[in-house]
């Protein structure tokens, strides 16, 4: 795995004292780390703090990284633990994410199809954001970072069965809400056509 070799080299150089190498490791990983954190903590400025803490902690823990394990998932495990620590500390008040009633702005009514897509995308995202934290954990790992359910279980340190049931529960909730909204959209269309 080429990616893994690249990580190994950067890690080795970092352990040998190269700050530049750690900068490169940061660049190679921050996109996924940042998106995961921001998804889970929802407040952008908090996300910055948490990501900073993650990379400081990572540097301290690199010595313990066992080269036989894949680096990315190991890093993700660290990310998830740091986010959980942040939540426990309760740094800032957790904002309650906006409910599905929030209407997204509709830019151009002509492209009805695209608009519906964009609207439904926003709506779906809002629904995802309103899911309980434990469900959002598995969502971000399995659907955004695209880890397998087994990998997600290893990253979170929970049984595979728990991951499966949480994904199932999440999809159920999303389906239920989606159905309700579809019906609503249908009714709106009907109203305007008449």
């Amino acid at each position: 795995m080429e990616e893994q070799t690249e990580y190994s080299q950067l890690i080795a150089r970092t352990l040998a004292g190269s700050r530049e190498a750690y900068g490169e490791l940061y660049e190679a990983t921050v996109r996924d780390v940042y998106r995961t954190v921001r998804f889970l903590v929802s407040e952008p400025s908090d996300a910055d703090d948490v990501v900073q803490d993650i990379y400081l902690e990572l540097h301290r823990s690199l010595e313990q990284y066992d080269g036989t394990r894949a680096f990315k998932p190991w890093l993700m495990g660290l990310v998830m633990r740091q986010v959980q620590a942040y939540r426990r500390k309760g740094w800032r008040q957790l904002r309650i994410t906006k409910k599905a009633e929030h209407t997204a702005s509709i830019p151009d009514a002509d492209f009805a199809g695209e608009v519906i897509d964009r609207l439904s995308s926003h709506m779906l995202m809002d629904k995802v954001n309103s899911l309980p934290y434990k469900l959002r954990q598995v969502i971000v790992l399995h659907y955004l970072q695209e880890y397998s359910q087994e990998e997600a279980a290893a990253i979170l340190g929970i049984p595979l069965g728990t991951v499966k049931s949480r994904i199932h529960a999440a999809l159920q909730k999303l389906r239920r809400k989606q159905k309700a909204d579809t019906i609503r959209i249908g009714k709106v269309e009907e109203m305007h056509e008449s």
Partner: peptide, 27 residues
């Protein structure tokens, strides 16, 4: 749908550039 939505909605998310400097100075 979920996959695509997540990708699309998080596409623009990126760490502020000054974060890297903060981290490298902190280690």
């Amino acid at each position: 749908n979920l996959r695509r939505t997540l990708q699309a909605e998080t596409e623009g998310w990126s760490a502020p550039p000054e974060l890297k400097g903060k981290i490298l100075n902190g280690i």
